[in-house]
Amino acid sequence: MVTPMAAPKRIEIQDLRLSYGGREVLHGITLDVEANEILAIIGPAQSGKTSLLRCMNRMIDVIPEARVSGTVKVDGVDVRSIRNVCELRRKIGMVAPLPVGLPLSIYDNVAFAPMQAGVTGTAELDVLVERCLRRAALWDEVKDRLRTLGSKLSGGQQQRLTIARALSHQPEILCLDEFSIAIDPITTARIEDVLRELRSEMTVVMVTNLVQQARRLADRTAFLLNGDLIEIGPTEAVFSDRPARRETYDYVQGLFG
C-alpha cells in the first residue's frame, strides 16, 4: 500500500502521561500535529484537553505538582531538553479560554512579546501591532483608542486582543483553548475565517467544546475522553457515521458529553 506523502510533523507526542499530585489525568497520549493543518481536540470537560496543550509549550512547568512522562517533540526537539523555554513559548502562540488582558494598554498588550524579544523601533512596532490587530479582526474597533487599557474592552474584543497578542510574536504554531467561549457567534465566525487564512503560514491546534466548530474548521480531529485519546483522524472520518470507535460516534452525535 502506498501512503501519500506525509506532511512534515510539527509536534510529535509519544506516550505522554501527566499527573497532578499522584492523580493521572493523561494516560499515555500519542499523536502528531502536521505542518499547516488545523487540528481540533474535542472532548467533554475534564478530559485533559487543556493539560495536553500546556505540555506543548511547557506551561505545565508553572504547576508545581505536575509530573510529566513520555516525550513531546516540537520540530523534532524534545521540549524537556530545551534550555531557552522562552523561545519555545514564542514559537507557540497560546490563546486562553477566558481573555486575560495584561494590565496594559491595547497597544502594549500586543507589543509586549515583540518588545521582550528585542523589537524596539516605534515604527516597526506600530506596523506589527496594526497587522496583528487586523488579523484578529479587531483593528477597526480599536484603532482610535490604542492607548486605553485592554481591560476596558468588551469580553469578545478582549478575546480577539489575546488572539492578536498570540500572533504578535509570529508563532509557527498557534494553540487556541476554547477561544469562542466568551464571544458571540458572529465574531466567532470571523475568527474562524481568520484561522482558515492563517493555515497557510502556521499550524493551528484548537481545543474546543463545540463539536460543530471542529467539524467546520479542522482538517483532522482528535477525540479525548477522560485522559485517553479515543480517536484521531481526518475530520470527515471522525464525524462520519462510522468512526473507528463507538464512543466517538456517541459524542459527536451528542449522545453524551
Binding site: 508553572v62 523561545e87 486562553a96 486575560v100 496594559l104 521582550q116 497578542r165
Partner: peptide
C-alpha cells in the same frame, strides 16, 4: 493569570516582574 499570560508570551521571570507585576 497575568503571570501565565506573560509567561506564555515568552517573557522571562524578570520581564514578568518588571512589565506586568509592578504595573
Amino acid at each position: 493569570t497575568y503571570r501565565e499570560a506573560a509567561v506564555a508570551l515568552g517573557a522571562t521571570r524578570w520581564q514578568v516582574v518588571y512589565r506586568v507585576l509592578l504595573p
